[in-house]
Structures are given as C-alpha cells and as structure tokens.
Design a protein around this nucleic acid. Structure first.
Lengths: 213, 213, 213, 213
DNA sequence: TATGAATGAGCGTTCATTCAT
DNA sequence: AATGAATGAACGCTCATTCAT
C-alpha cells in the first residue's frame, strides 16, 4: 500500500564524504546528458540512474524525489553563474558604467558559456519543476549586486537604481540564451559580450536622465 | 506527455467552418484556464475537454495529440504578440530610432499584457512541448521586421543591423516576463514601456558606432 | 512528475449502468480469489485486474485506489452479514431470549457461511487497510439492533442492555471465524449455531441478574 | 513485505547470551512503538532498527526477515497471554465452573491488558504475516488447558468438552479486543471480566445439558 | 459525427535484504 | 561482529490515446 510523505525539494544527505560528492556529481552530469538527449519529458529517474551508473535506489538516497534532483542541478548551474556575476559586480564598485558593464557582461557570458551544453540542457527544467523559483531568486541576488555596484558609479546617478538593476539583469538573459541555443562558438560569445555591454551602457546612459516615474 | 516523440504538431483540420473556430477557441481558453489552475504537469487532456465542454474524443478531432494542442495555444498567443510588434515596426519605417523604439515597445508590451494571465499561463508550455521552436520562429519574424525598420532609420546607421535586431528583440522578453510574473498592473506596464524604450534607444545609439566585429 | 491528490476510500462512480455493476462484481470476485490464493501481501492491483479480465486502468475507473477496493469488498461482505443479522433481530422483537438467540445466531452463521471462502478471504483485509473501521461500524449497527431487540424480551430485563449487546455480538465473531478457518462444513456450522445460541442464552440469563456495575 | 513467501520464520540465533536477550527485547519494543506510531504498513525494518538503536545489519542477525521479526513479537505477546491463562486453568482443577470462569477470565484480561497499547499494536500483525498461525496455535494450547480444567469441574459435566473449550476461548477474544481498541481503562477492564465470566458461566451451564449433536 | 469507457505502457518511488568494509 | 550504503524487483497509479458504439 502506498504511503505519502511531505514532498521536500532539499537534498537528502549532506555530501560530507568525498564519495558522496563524486556520486552526486555523476548524477548531475547524467541528468544533464539525459536532458540533452531526450528533452524534459524524456528524463526519467531510471535513465538518469542508468547513465550515472548507480541504482535508482542510490539515486533516491541522495535526492528525495525527481523534482529535487532537477532543482538541485539547476540550482548549481544558475548559482555558479550568479556567483560569477556578483563577484564581477563587487570588483567594479566605484568604476564607470562602461567598465562596470563590460566586466559584468563578460563575467556573465563566460560563466554561462563555460559549458554551453549545460546551459542549453537546463533551460527546460529551469522553467518547470518549480526551479523557476530558484532562477528568480538567483536573478534577484544578481540584481542586488548590480544595484550595489550601480550606486557607486562615478559617471552616473540613477533615480530608480533598483528597478534599473532588475531590468538590466533580465535583459541580458534573453540574448545570451538565444546565442547559446543557436549553437554559438567562442567568437560569437565574444561578440555577444560587446553587444550586451552596449545594451547595458546605452540603457544606463538613457535612464540616468529619466525622472522618477 | 511522456509518449513517442516526433508526432505531428499541426492541427488536424482546418477551421473552415465557424463552428470549428468557436470550438477551438473554447478549447484554447480551457487549456489556459487549466494551465493557470494546475500548472504544466497538472494539465490533462480530460480536464481540458471537461472545461471546454467537449468530449476528449472531439478534442482529438481537432488536435492529433496533446503537444499539438499546447503548441497551438502557444502559437496563437505568441503569434498575436509578434503580429502586433511587426505591425508597429512596419508603421515606423523612415522614423527616428527614438520613435521606432517607443512605438515598438508599446506595441509589444500592450500585446503581451492584454491578458497578462494568458502570458503567465503560457510561459511553461512555451519552454516545454517543443513549443520553444515556435517561440524562436516568431522571434525571428519580429527580428526581421525590426531589421527592415532599422535600416530605414533617419538618424542612425547600423553595421550589423541583423544581429542588432535579434539582440534587441531577445532583450525585451526577459524584463517583460519578470514584470508579468510579478503580477504587475497597468501603471507598471507603462513604466516598463519607458524602460524598454530606454533600453532599445540606448543600445541602438551605442551600436550605431560600433565597428564591425 | 507525480501529482498527489487527497486519498479517498469512496468508490469512484455510481454503478448506474448494468455493465458497470457486472464489472464491479467481477473485480470483487477477482479480489477475493487473489486474496485466497496469495494472501494479503500477494494482492496487487495488476493481479486483481488480470484475474478480473480488465485492464488496471479500468480498475482505477471504479476505485480511486487499492485500499478503497479492498474496503469496498469488505464492506459488501460485512454489510450483508450485518443486514441479515439485523433483519433477524427485527423479526424477533417481543420474543423470549431463547428464540431471539436461536434466530439471530442462525441468521448470522448462515450469512457468514453462505460462501465460507469469501469470509475466509476477507479476514485479512478486514484487519488492515482501515477496513477495520468498516467492521467496527457494522458491528455497532448489529449491536444496536440486538439492543433494540433485547429490551423487548418477554422473559428477561437487562440493566446494561447496551453493553450486553456489544459483548454478545463481539463474542460470536471469534468462534465463527475459528470454525470457518478450520474449514468447517454444513453440519459443523449447524453445531456452531447451537453453541452460539447456548453462549448467548447463557450469557443473557447470567447478566439479567447482574446489578448495574 | 511483498517478497517471496515461505521463508523461515524462526529466529536466527538462540538468545543464549544475556546481550542478545536484551537486544532482542529492545527490537521487540521498537517494533511495537513503530507499529503504534505508523500502523502495519508504515513499519519498515530501518525504522525498527533506528528506534532500537541497532543497525539493520544487526537486526538481520537476529531475524532472518521482517515477517519472522513480526511473528516473534506476536508470538511473545500471545504466548504470555496464553501462559497466564493456562496457568490459571491449571490452578482451578476440581473447582466449580463459576470459580473456574472467574479466575480464567481475570487471568486472560489481566495478561491482555497489562500493556493495552501492546495488544492494540499487535492486532494488525497478528492477522497478517502468517502470524495468525501462531495465534491459532496459542489458542489451541489455551483450549486444551481449558478442556483439562473443565473435565474436573465439580458441578458440571460436558458431552463435548473439547468443542466447548474452543468456543469458550474463541468467544472471549472478541469482546476483549473491542474494549482494548476502544481505549478502555482499568475500571472498564474489571467490568469486562465480570461479563466474560457471565458469558462463560452462562454458556457452560447451557451446554452441560446439550446432548451430543 | 460525437462520445467516453477502456487500455496499458511506463512512470516515480519504496524498502527488504545483502555484503563489502 | 557490526555497519549502513547500495541494490533492484516490484508496487500503486496516471493519463494520452483509441475505437466500438
């Protein structure tokens, strides 16, 4: 007879041991591969376990359910990108908006395209499985870091720095995704950085003159 | 959903008769309602049929499978937004980039937020069910229209007008989605238009001076 | 991804159509057969469906889950026995305790041993799957009927008629079960009736003299 | 539970050492607690082991499988109750049926309600896990003891003393269970003794006059 | 043409049991 | 001897889709 327990999305055990760490990484990698090969509906726990070379029992020792696994994979990736972007923002306090944008966009694009296939694989589960909450939160973290950076800009003041930060972050995701999904290569990614920088700088120049709405 | 892949996604019968037209609209509306109520994986064909007041047998007379239905719903919505945006672009040939952006952004935001709950409901199926191909195609249509408009701008020239158009279109969906999902109201949508216009104008000003990468 | 809905034990659809009625009976019968053949843990939805000659999908069209099916089978059986016993009680109002007991015990034993294998099969699920609630309720119904009968006895008065009724009902279940599980035949069942009657009559004679505890 | 049938149900090692004895008792107690907390199908070997403070590996050193564990728990409890009842019977050889019944019923109820929650916990596993065989055997032991006692009664003779003994034993478990499951307290248990005594005495008086069926 | 009962492949998940450490 | 991570068979159940009526 089937029991029911409260569904949690948090991982089941802390990866304290090295072995666990490796297993979890293997499972993450397998998830990405299956996602890439079969799409979101093609991801089954059995396939993931098979590809990772573990039994599904083991898989469930690390994750309470499939959603939690998918969410964890998304979180790791999105978190890394966010971390890199935030780091870049922190390093550019007190600079010009030109420098800020150039550095931030480069960091974002570099992080997002370090393994383009991972980004590509994760666009689907990011939208589904409640992982969009994760995406939203990481976006917020980035926006906060951008905000903190922007208010230190030497060559511009913003009436609505917070809103501006959110728009800025939200606006760079779309073009990046388009380029990744189109299968871009390094040189295209470099071109993307220039354009995202132009997008950011142009926007910031414009809004530094808009009066409070 | 988890069935064979690569089925036909095209609707089963042309809606030549008025009756079919109405039925299909009812089904579309039902789909959106169920999507809103239950989320993407809470959507079942039976629920849609029930809500639409038709038998699932009938539903399958209009759509070869569930993916096709979802894709059609997405296509209609995204198509309408694209049409409105394209129309705006066409009407602004020979104008300044300021006017172009203002008009285009307004048209886009108005179309997208005419029924915000529909947009909200469709973000999930747009990513899944291979409907992202549809989204991509409609984006391309928009980008082409933007491109055709941009090259007629009286106050700017673009070395890479095509790439610029694509970046422009891709950059506005993110902020718009964020605002819709945050449950924005009309006044927020108006503010969004201003910012998207600033984003576009600023970007275009910047890139009209960038030399070919 | 798996949904969760509130688990109900009530049948899914009213058996209005003759066809449904037959299908449900077939499923009930199959359940009993599988129970008899494999025991309680051997009862699987697939086996029941197979034996009933329906798909498990159909099985789930009639019952929301396995527990509900088992509960329904138990309820039908226990309900029939209770009905027969209650009927007998009603028919003996105003009689002597000898006649009351003889008639009631006969009715109970006859109902319970009409198809001894069914009784035997259902002892297990009666204890599990929350079906014991059903058993308890039907026992209460019987006890109430016994109570209503006892207070009309011409040759005895009871200080605690309600408690007495409950003890009486509870006391006859054990011996009957023992006899059925021992594989008794008709002549043994007849002997059982005599002894249960003696048990009842003897008890009632004794307690009609006990002063209120 | 749903594993192969017909495994050994006998404990794996004789509890010769004091340590084993203690461990087994701990496991028994843990089993009862988990049973009480989660019901029969909420009982898992891991939970039992956890609660007992042993590893499941150790648990399997004492019991070949889960059924055997459950059966052992049931056996200990039912055995204790049977022992107490049998002891009482032995002590009442050559007495009147009134005294016999009073003493026997008191012993039975006292043993069964010494820890009512244990009795309550074990009703389910007693029916399942083939433990009903154990219950049946212990009942037989009791019935034999009752039989041996009855034939020494100074104030009655029984044509079918063996059958009578079986009916007597079987008839008292139902009311006792009902009272325990209803959450009775000591005073109710005392009342139960009176009624079971009445039940027994009344029955014996009646059947001491029945001629061989 | 419209219906909706029937289908059954396939999913997520559990947990008794083993065995390398 | 004791551990507990790993296993994987097997379960309950869903739901897109079909087709007899």
């Amino acid at each position: 007879m089937n029991r029911k327990r409260a569904e949690s999305l948090s991982p089941r055990k802390r990866p304290k041991q090295r072995r666990s760490r490796v297993t979890i990484d293997t499972i993450f990698e397998a998830t990405i591969q299956v996602l890439l090969a079969n799409g979101l509906d093609g991801v089954t726990t059995i396939q993931i376990a098979d590809r990772a070379g573990v039994s599904i029992g083991s898989l469930y020792q690390y994750f309470p359910n499939k959603r939690a696994l998918l969410a964890a994979v998304v979180k790791r990736h999105v978190g890394e990108v966010a971390d890199a972007t935030i780091e870049a923002c922190k390093s550019m306090h007190g600079k010009t908006i030109d420098d800020m944008c150039a550095t931030m966009m480069a960091a974002f694009v570099d992080a997002k395209t370090r393994r383009p296939e991972v980004s590509r694989a994760l666009y689907l589960p990011s939208a589904a499985v409640n992982a969009d909450a994760i995406v939203k939160e990481e976006s917020s973290r980035c926006a906060r870091a951008v905000h903190e950076m922007l208010i230190t800009a030497t060559d511009a003041k913003f009436a609505q720095a917070q809103l501006v930060s959110n728009v800025l972050i939200a606006s760079i995701v779309g073009p990046t995704r388009a380029v990744i999904e189109a299968g871009g290569n390094r040189s295209i990614f470099e071109r993307l950085k220039l354009h995202l920088t132009a997008l950011g700088v142009g926007y910031l120049k414009e809004v530094s003159t808009i009066s409070t709405g």
